[in-house]
Amino acid sequence: MTKPAASKPEPDPSPQVQAWRAAQKARTAGTTDASPTTATRADAAETTYVPEGQGDVPWHRILDTRLNDALVARVNLSATPRS
């Protein structure tokens, strides 16, 4: 019978990841102001960490091909190296 791989703890996250997670927890808990102050905006600007998989932006060139009703192939043409 196939056994699952043993789990291992996550390594300590970087300071950027810790700051991003803390900001997300505060945002979802509703502990932040609805209109951020200038200091809050400055603090947010210093957080440059973007989680993997985020960032669908309009300047990326993405080619979508529907293979069947449930499967779509997406190719990010802006990430491919150009010769």
Rank of each mutant, 00 (worst) to 15 (best):
T2S: 05
P4Y: 01
P4D: 02
P4A: 04
P4T: 00
P4M: 00
A5T: 00
A6L: 05
S7H: 01
S7Y: 01
K8D: 01
P9T: 07
P11Y: 09
P13F: 08
P13H: 06
P15I: 08
V17G: 04
V17L: 10
Q18F: 00
Q18T: 09
Q18S: 02
W20R: 14
W20K: 13
W20I: 06
R21I: 13
Q24M: 13
K25F: 09
A26K: 08
R27G: 04
R27N: 09
R27L: 12
R27D: 09
R27S: 12
T28M: 14
T28F: 15
T28L: 15
T28C: 07
G30Y: 06
T31W: 00
T31L: 05
T31Q: 07
T32E: 11
D33K: 13
D33Q: 08
D33V: 00
S35Y: 10
S35P: 01
T38K: 14
A39D: 13
A39I: 06
T40N: 08
R41D: 11
R41H: 11
A42P: 05
A42N: 15
D43F: 06
D43K: 12
D43A: 14
D43R: 11
A44R: 13
E46T: 14
T47L: 15
T47G: 02
T47D: 13
T48C: 08
T48S: 13
P51S: 03
P51Q: 05
P51G: 01
P51M: 03
E52N: 09
G53I: 05
Q54G: 02
G55I: 05
D56M: 07
V57T: 10
V57Q: 03
V57L: 04
V57K: 03
P58C: 03
P58F: 04
W59D: 07
H60E: 02
H60T: 01
L63A: 15
D64E: 14
D64H: 13
D64N: 12
T65F: 06
R66Y: 12
R66S: 12
R66V: 15
L67E: 11
N68K: 00
D69F: 07
D69G: 15
A70F: 10
V72D: 02
A73I: 07
A73H: 11
R74T: 05
V75E: 07
N76R: 09
L77H: 02
L77I: 04
A79V: 08
P81L: 10
P81M: 06
R82K: 15
R82C: 06
S83C: 05
